[in-house]
């Protein structure tokens, strides 16, 4: 099984597609007595772009955080490329995997946060090359070259030596995207990446993500309130409510002809239009 994919290779070669990039098996997540996710099962195929929608508190962000191992799983299993992430079934017992094993898998996953989380003690360039150099062991020259290309592609070629806090929110988020891509992830998690941004700069960030979706075959798991973006980028949309998937469909079907009443109500509230549709642009 290939552990890294060339981002420029054509998506979906027959052998790899058989094993899903992400698989949730009977996943449960509790915070104290509060059950956030209950008996959750779903798969994301390699190269898929899946958007999770649903009211706040429905557990969408928790799913991303579980995949990134930022939260610990209460019950069940998560598989990345068929390999158990945090827990595995061994001799009929559910046991936690070693930190080392988890780390190997984690390297293939990247995440972009709502609040950017750039390191303020490093310049933009240092932020981007930090993990490639010190985690993946790339040479500084190699990592810098790649970082400059990435900065170019997110439209910030002149900002390599700037400090993150001197940048606008939109610029910071573009750096954060470059930082995640510098690790050449197989899976990219996007957690409400435009929610902290001013409305007028949401578009530039989404444009970059759209471009990445078009030019790579990175598997994406997206939580967003931007329904137009979900429609443009994803090939599957999953509607969450109360910690469960209530409906799952292609964006065309989901946004024009939702079946479940919860989905209809949600889309109606979010889109604010009478018929719950979004127009094509």
């Amino acid at each position: 099984m290939p552990t890294t994919t060339d981002p420029h290779a054509a998506a979906g070669d027959g052998t790899a597609a058989a094993v899903p990039a992400i698989r949730f098996e009977n996943v449960e997540k509790r915070f104290g007595d509060n059950v956030v996710l209950k008996d959750l099962n779903f798969e994301v195929a390699k190269g898929d772009r899946v958007t999770l929608i649903g009211p706040s508190g429905s557990g969408k962000t928790t799913i991303l955080r579980l995949v990134m191992t930022l939260e610990s799983l209460s019950e069940g299993y998560i598989y990345i490329d068929g390999e158990p992430l945090t827990h595995e079934l061994r001799d009929g017992k559910r046991v936690a995997r070693s930190e080392k094993a988890q780390k190997q898998i984690r390297k293939r996953i990247g995440m972009v946060f709502q609040q950017f989380n750039l390191f303020p003690n490093m310049t933009v360039l240092e932020n981007i090359i930090e993990a490639p150099v010190h985690v993946l062991g790339q040479s500084k020259a190699e990592a810098t070259k790649r970082a400059m290309e990435l900065l170019e592609s997110v439209g910030l070629p002149g900002k390599a030596n700037a400090h993150p806090l001197q940048l606008s929110g939109g610029q910071q988020q573009r750096v954060a995207i470059a930082r995640a891509l510098a690790m050449d992830p197989d899976i990219l998690l996007l957690d409400e990446v435009t929610s902290a941004l001013d409305p007028e700069i949401v578009g530039e960030v989404l444009g970059i993500l759209r471009h990445i979706a078009e030019t790579t075959d990175i598997t994406m798991l997206i939580v967003t309130h931007e329904m137009q973006f979900a429609r443009d980028v994803s090939n599957r949309v999953m509607m969450f409510d109360g910690g469960r998937v209530v409906e799952e469909a292609t964006p065309d079907v989901m946004f024009t002809n939702p079946q479940h009443e919860r989905t209809q109500a949600f889309l109606h509230a979010v889109l604010g239009s009478g018929d719950g549709h979004i127009g094509t642009h």
């Binding site: 946060f113 989380n117 993990a131 985690v135």
Partner: peptide, 15 residues
């Protein structure tokens, strides 16, 4: 958020 970003970049504890 800073701690979470280091996890997302697979940094070691000492790093």
């Amino acid at each position: 958020g800073q701690w979470e970003a280091t996890t997302a970049l697979s940094m070691s504890k000492s790093q």
